[in-house]
Nucleic acid binder design. Structure first.
Lengths: 318, 318
DNA sequence: CTGAAAGCGCTAACAT
DNA sequence: ATGTTAGCGCTTTCAG
């Protein structure tokens, strides 16, 4: 805050001590006598002294805050993720600063720059559907910024990732449709570049193949914005219905696509079956390649440990 | 971030200039010659220089970030509010740091202390159901921290508030039930101390009174935690059903109470009618009593203006 | 055990 | 037009 708040200097003056003594006393240093400590602590309590965290950050290059970037907060999935993150972060004295990419690679980059320049101790990110250039993230990672991916990860960056078992879930979903008797199962997927899309695609294709069904490329349609733009889902659906052999079922690759999938106007040979993708949760944390040894929290725990917790505990029920 | 990132000093050294010249050049000051400016800018771009915002904050006592405290992020209402806030904040170069009170006054206070000590330029808060002591908020307000209340406001603090027309909505809802022929309309309300509860209660009572129905105190039950705790809703409902003259309809005072209201096991004389409270939106900003004149954004706009925008544009559809 | 002084990175008043 | 210096609030050598 910018309004006059009292500082260590003020305390020092009032108590006729040096700032360093006050500083040390407040941090309960062993090199300060008990009486002095008490005097300082007591006085600090009285005047409700709060150390300026900004100054502390400048000094020891830690901000005690972690940045979170998701496509959209008002998305049940992500708001729950953020809930979990905030919860654990709070327990460890961390602040959470959030930003939305709105599925735009450009905004994501701007957010990234903004957050990192404001000094975050770690980053939790679910990349936007549009993101295809990972240079900046890679740079940050190589510079040692602890990064945790949620849901949408980047293959080439070797760091902690909390992701779903996309492959098997898609496989199971597709198999379900097959067992129900559907034969021409289409897939409306999120943007191709996303790891989750690729994995789900593979599960879908494998399921078809293993059940002796043909894998028709025309039956896979992509939505660049993951269904955020209504038209793209409509286009995908219309495209499918324009096929000579129309699909008799559609596997919608994600939430937004499901809810956005337009009701087909053209009457299909058989009513369409929309199956929402609800993968199981799997967490597979891997050791960080860059341990960033300097970063520890109050308990001496590695800073990234807090991030791990944050993610591990997030209620990823999708 | 804590890893070595280059500073103005480094640039100055490389370019054989003084740090102040570099600083001024980067901020496009008129007192720097064009050639020098270009040289500095160009070099800064090359090495991807990013000013340390922490240092800037320390200098000019502004953090360019606003704090948001809500009871819970994973609540459609609030996640949408936050969405709007982040969106506008982003446009104005502000960061958003969020914290959850989880309807606990204690956590709220801790969050408040944490956020303010980390220097936020403004606060947007929806107080917890539990909050009854507003001293700290008042203090902050009097110190000049710009505060905006969302949804749940505090009467005594005279600042911007974005609230719903609780009175009329409750009146309308109750009237609706009356017109449907219900006569013994109960109210399960959020905690009594909340302004929204009081206003809704008033609307409910007035509607009953004006339609010639008795206002029975036993027909109003409160949930301290606004329905976050399942038992409290159950208790309230059981209490109502335990009345000699059971209610024939229940007006649930908020989202969480609606969704949490247990199905009555006891068979009522007539099926219960749950009506969810969906007030219209009204924003009634009032001029700040403490203009905190020093606070301006890049465009010279008053800092609180940004906060206003943030709120004004938030999709408060409830 | 306590104090003086330097420094984190940046800005700005004050020289030149 | 550019450089010198001081200072934001805190921590931390380094000296007493």
């Amino acid at each position: 805050m910018k309004f006059p708040s009292l500082t260590i200097k003020d305390i020092a003056r009032s108590l006729n001590l040096s700032t360093s003594t006050v500083s040390r006393a407040l941090r309960d240093s062993h090199e300060i006598s008990e009486p002095t400590k008490r005097r300082v602590m007591e006085y600090a309590r009285q005047v409700d002294f709060k150390p300026n965290r900004i100054a502390q950050s400048l000094k020891d290059k830690r901000s005690q805050s972690i940045g979170v970037i998701v496509c959209e907060i008002a998305n049940t999935f992500f708001s729950q993720v953020i809930n979990g993150i905030e919860s654990i972060a709070y327990q460890h004295g961390y602040n959470v600063t959030i930003a939305q990419s709105r599925e735009s690679a450009e905004r994501e980059l701007l957010n990234l720059r903004h957050l990192t320049s404001r000094a975050i101790d770690g980053l939790i990110i679910s990349v936007s559907t549009e993101t295809s250039n990972f240079d900046y993230l890679n740079q940050l990672h190589e510079k040692g910024l602890p990064i945790v991916f949620v849901d949408r990860a980047i293959d080439n960056i070797d760091t902690h990732k909390v992701i779903l078992d996309n492959y098997h879930s898609a496989y199971t979903a597709t198999t379900h449709l097959v067992k129900k008797g559907y034969r021409r199962i289409a897939l409306i997927s999120n943007n191709e570049s996303l790891s989750i899309s690729r994995e789900r695609l593979k599960g879908y294709r494998d399921a078809l193949a293993e059940h002796g069904l043909p894998v028709n490329d025309a039956f896979t349609r992509y939505c660049k914005h993951g269904g955020m733009v209504y038209e793209e889902v409509e286009t995908a659906m219309k495209g499918l219905l324009g096929e000579q052999m129309k699909p008799d079922a559609v596997f919608a690759g994600s939430d937004k696509i499901t809810t956005g999938t337009p009701h087909p106007r053209a009457r299909p040979a058989r009513p369409h079956r929309l199956l929402q993708h609800r993968p199981h949760r799997t967490a597979r944390p891997r050791p960080l390649r860059h341990p960033t040894a300097g970063l520890r929290d109050g308990r001496g725990r590695h800073a990234t440990a807090a991030l791990d917790d944050a993610i591990e505990t997030a209620p990823l029920q999708f």
